[in-house]
Design a protein around this nucleic acid. Sequence first.
DNA 1: GCGTTACCGAATACCGTGTTCGCTTAAATT
DNA 2: AATTTAAGCGAACACGGTATTCGGTAACGC
Lengths: 180, 180
Amino acid sequence: MDRRQRKSRQAIFRAFTELLKKESYGKITVQQIIDLADVGRTTFYTHFETKDDVLRALCESIFSHVFSDDPGKETTHDFSAEHSVQSRMTHILYHLREHMDYLPGILTGDGGEIFMGSLRGHLAELFAPALERGHSAVPADYLLNHMITDFSETVRWWTRHARYTPEEISAFFWAAVPSV
Amino acid sequence: MDRRQRKSRQAIFRAFTELLKKESYGKITVQQIIDLADVGRTTFYTHFETKDDVLRALCESIFSHVFSDDPGKETTHDFSAEHSVQSRMTHILYHLREHMDYLPGILTGDGGEIFMGSLRGHLAELFAPALERGHSAVPADYLLNHMITDFSETVRWWTRHARYTPEEISAFFWAAVPSV
DNA sequence: GCGTTACCGAATACCGTGTTCGCTTAAATT
DNA sequence: AATTTAAGCGAACACGGTATTCGGTAACGC
């Protein structure tokens, strides 16, 4: 990829996250991004279809890092499946914290749907295997949705109570989820 | 209130819910509402500030009915607080089912935030008393948010799986919520 | 009946989105 | 270094939806 392209793309993301620190996604206009990124209007639209497209790309770049890390590294000598998932969650929270400065801007207004949707998609892959044994009277689909909702909404709650550590948040989450 | 006003307001609500059965909130325009309701543009704007305003008013009218019903009526001879809340939830679900034909239209797209926000507000009042005794290591605020999230997201899930009865949905909810 | 009030609808200002076009400038190729 | 290739620029424009204005009409309630 051309260096100019990389710089433009980077400038747009940079401006976008910078704006998110000050106002919610819904109120940010393409013009603001263009102005702060200091790129031409045409340039913006050659890189992205719409403003939503920028957000989707941002979410994808966040989650691809957050979810792709080697999950084995964090496990201690306890190899039970439960523990593996738990430490995985904490690990994810650690990564998400790095973006905490602009996450609130995404989660208020209507950009929330895009972020949450992306997060939920990744969580689905993570939780689905753990719910294979359908021994419950409750539909597996409901339970899966329930787990995904609880975790993603915990993340959203965290963005409003940023004083807590990833370990604490993880503990809250597992305390409030019934043993499945 | 003038009969003309009542008729206009009613026509707007009627057109609005009718449109919601066919397309999502976000895609409905004020013009469509005006056309279907067969009222003048000016009339619409004398009754409501914006399109969001219509939705807020609709939500308020739904929830004021749903949540205001005498909660004592449904309780059996078991007077424990737990049971009271449970039957209350089922009762709420019964009322919500009456609006099931257009709820999906509200919950997809960006109108979802408004509906969910309104629902969450009412649920907060309902659940807050039950969580008074803060004997947990988890912040009461987190637990409250957790309960609200679980129920409101259960409602959202229901709109996508409308084949279930209120009793079943209620059962799913309580099965997936730990005893608080 | 008569004053009040709501309703009408065309015209208009406004705002943000996304596209077009001719030109400039930087990068890659030889 | 010269040439080709591709990216960037920004003013102008078309579009769609929102919200307001205004002069005229008709329904309502007392």
